[in-house]
Simulated assay, not measured.
Amino acid sequence: MDVRADPPAPRSPVAGRRRALKYLAPGKFTIKTPKGREQAFGVDDNTKITGHGKICGEGQSCTAEQLESSTKSGVGATVVMKNGVATSIVETN
C-alpha cells in the first residue's frame, strides 16, 4: 500500500512498499504506515481496486466485497488515500 499517513496530505500514498492491508469493519480497512502505525481508511464506489491473485484475478478490477472477504487474514497492497478514503488499492504479491 502506498501509505504516507504521517503527516496527512491532500493525497497521501502509503509508501510504495508492500504493506499489510487488513479488514476492520464493513467498508473499513487498516494498513501499516512506514512508521508502523495502523491507519484506518474507508472505500467507496469510486475506489479503484486491482487484484493480483488473492483479492481477485491478476490485473483484474475487484469489487469491495472481494476486497472484504480476502483481507480478513491480511493481504499486501499499495493504497492511495484522499481524506481518509482509498482512491486506489493495488494488491502486491
Results as ranks from 00 to 15, higher is better:
82 K>E: 14
13 P>I: 03
50 T>N: 01
7 P>C: 06
28 K>N: 08
9 A>C: 10
10 P>C: 11
81 M>A: 10
76 G>Q: 11
8 P>L: 07
62 C>K: 00
12 S>R: 08
93 N>H: 11
46 N>S: 15
73 S>E: 12
32 K>A: 09
68 E>W: 05
38 E>H: 09
66 Q>H: 10
88 S>F: 10
65 E>F: 04
5 A>Y: 04
45 D>V: 13
26 P>K: 10
50 T>K: 02
86 A>N: 00
4 R>S: 09
23 Y>K: 04
50 T>V: 14
59 G>W: 05
46 N>D: 15
87 T>K: 12
84 G>P: 03
3 V>G: 01
45 D>E: 15
71 T>E: 02
68 E>C: 05
86 A>M: 03
72 K>M: 03
56 C>A: 08
73 S>K: 15
20 A>N: 11
7 P>Y: 07
57 G>P: 04
12 S>M: 08
81 M>C: 10
33 T>H: 08
24 L>T: 03
22 K>D: 11
78 T>Y: 06
51 G>D: 04
33 T>R: 10
16 G>H: 10
68 E>H: 10
35 K>Q: 15
31 I>T: 09
92 T>L: 13
81 M>W: 00
53 G>D: 03
25 A>H: 06
69 S>T: 10
16 G>K: 06
89 I>F: 04
75 V>S: 01
5 A>E: 07
64 A>Y: 00
34 P>K: 13
25 A>F: 04
9 A>D: 11
83 N>H: 10
58 E>P: 03
16 G>R: 11
9 A>K: 14
13 P>C: 05
14 V>M: 08
67 L>Y: 01
63 T>I: 09
58 E>W: 10
25 A>K: 09
85 V>N: 11
11 R>A: 11
22 K>F: 10
34 P>G: 11
69 S>C: 03
84 G>E: 06
69 S>Q: 15
68 E>G: 09
85 V>Q: 10
76 G>W: 12
3 V>K: 07
56 C>P: 01
40 A>S: 15
34 P>T: 06
41 F>S: 00
31 I>N: 00
45 D>S: 15
40 A>Y: 12
70 S>F: 02
85 V>P: 05
32 K>Q: 15
7 P>V: 04
81 M>V: 06
45 D>P: 02
84 G>F: 01
4 R>C: 07
72 K>Q: 12
10 P>L: 14
79 V>S: 02
8 P>R: 06
56 C>G: 07
